[in-house]
Amino acid sequence: MTIPLSILDLSPISSGSDAGQALRNTIDLARRAESFGYHRYWVAEHHFAAGVASAAPAVLIGQILAATDRIRVGSGAVQVGHRTPLSIVESFGLLDALYPGRIDLGLGRSGQRSKEAAAAPKGPRKEAFEKDGLLIPAAFDFSVLAASPRFAVYQRLLQQPAAVAPDFAEVVDDIRALIDGTYEGARATPGEGAKVELWILGSSAGQSAEVAGRLGLPFGANYHVAPASVLEAVEAYRAAFRPSQVLDRPYVIVSADVVVAPETAAARRLAAGYGLWVRSIRTGQGAIPFPSPAEAAEAPWTPEDAALVADRLDTQFVGTPDEVAERLRVLQRVTAADELLVTTITHDHGDRVRSFELLAHAWGILPSGG
């Protein structure tokens, strides 16, 4: 059985372009995704990145909803460490009031998670291994980024002075109570009664997976950001799962980075800038504008650079439609995912659109001739 295929879009800014063009590309891609048969279209939330324009999910979601007719649109994910539950519920309640029944509200633990990473004790590094054909690489140490001087600047700009993000479980409980109309002494308008689909997204077997399972909510696991811990995350979610009014069984969506072209060599050329882009993130400068294949070919690259981004490069699915579809089937089989969420970055917008179209054909959601 073919499971649903959905899209996560970061609104990437290509070298030589700007945020306005990146956002127009996102809206165009969402229209195309709807015609290609994709189930959902999610946008990310990123800050302080010269190469990513998706800084305000609710605003961008509204633009996408206005340009499409049927596809579900949502956040992957709202960073709850930087917003109050009321502001989140009112923003997404407003969207639901205008476009009822099409909104996914994905929540992520950024803020709390970053601080925990900086303070966490260092355990032994796990070696890479394969499970039934799926590579599980050695984990990247995110505490290096969280401990950088830039991190303190970012936190100061993202939060009010002396503000402390509450516990993630408390935030989720408040959001649910405001939507359900059960929050004592307060009501959200718009927001109360909104028919949004609530999701929890996570990169590890930590609190996000536990909260999603305990509350009986659907869970998103990141193979594209944290491939080393994807199996632990989905296992922790399923172990914690309790049936709810939302779900009677666990529901998992798993993400993957993909680039598809008619020929393998062409796909690899389109993906050539990915290593430079990931390196820029992991060295603390923030995502750079995505390089062209020619720029990537001329850029300096060291063995240390390769080691820094190896887990991401080795788990990016690059190739022909059939090659990428087969690797996605392996990912689905090993994680038992109910749905897959694919993200693609290329320098040229047309190549990105074509990648999603070719994959839709290979996955069977876009019939031949469609």
Rank of each mutant, 00 (worst) to 15 (best):
D257K: 11
Q245K: 15
E304F: 00
A287F: 15
R269E: 14
Y237V: 12
F241C: 00
F219L: 10
R214I: 06
V254C: 11
L313F: 09
A221C: 14
R282D: 00
A212L: 11
V318R: 02
G275T: 07
A310Q: 15
A267C: 14
A306Q: 15
S292K: 12
I281M: 10
Y237I: 06
V318T: 13
A265H: 09
V260I: 09
G220R: 08
A306I: 03
A266R: 14
W277T: 03
V246C: 12
G273L: 01
D311L: 02
R249V: 12
A287E: 05
Y251V: 06
P218R: 14
A271T: 00
A306D: 14
V225M: 12
L231T: 03
F317D: 00
V259H: 09
I253T: 15
A221H: 13
P243A: 09
L313H: 04
P243S: 08
V259E: 10
P291C: 10
V259Q: 06
T302K: 01
A240M: 05
W277E: 08
P227M: 06
E235L: 01
A240D: 02
Q316W: 08
L313K: 08
A266H: 10
A212K: 08
Q316L: 08
S280C: 11
D305S: 06
L270A: 14
E295H: 10
F241H: 03
R214S: 08
G216S: 11
A265D: 15
R279W: 05
P218E: 11
I288N: 05
V260R: 01
A233N: 01
E304M: 03
V259D: 12
V230D: 03
N222E: 14
P300A: 14
D248W: 00
P250V: 03
D248Q: 15
R268W: 15
Y237F: 04
E232M: 07
T283D: 04
P262S: 11
V230S: 07
V254G: 05
A233Q: 04
G213E: 00
A287D: 04
V252I: 15
A267N: 07
V234D: 01
P291F: 05
P262C: 05
T283G: 02
V258A: 10
V234H: 07
A294V: 13
L308D: 02
D257Q: 13
R238G: 02
P289R: 09
P289D: 10
A266I: 07
R242F: 00
L308E: 13
L231H: 06
S255I: 07
V230T: 15
P227I: 06
D305R: 08
D305V: 13
V318Q: 04
V225F: 12
A267Q: 09
S244A: 05
G275E: 01
F241S: 02
S244Y: 07
E304T: 12
V252W: 03
R238L: 07
Q245L: 13
G319D: 09
E232D: 15
A271C: 10
L217S: 02
A265N: 15
D257P: 01
E298N: 14
E263I: 01
V278S: 04
E263C: 05
P227G: 04
I281D: 00
E295P: 07
P291S: 06
F241N: 02
P243L: 09
A233T: 11
Y223R: 11
G284P: 13
Y223V: 05
T264M: 10
Q285E: 12
Q245F: 02
A236S: 13
V260N: 08
E298V: 06
L308C: 12
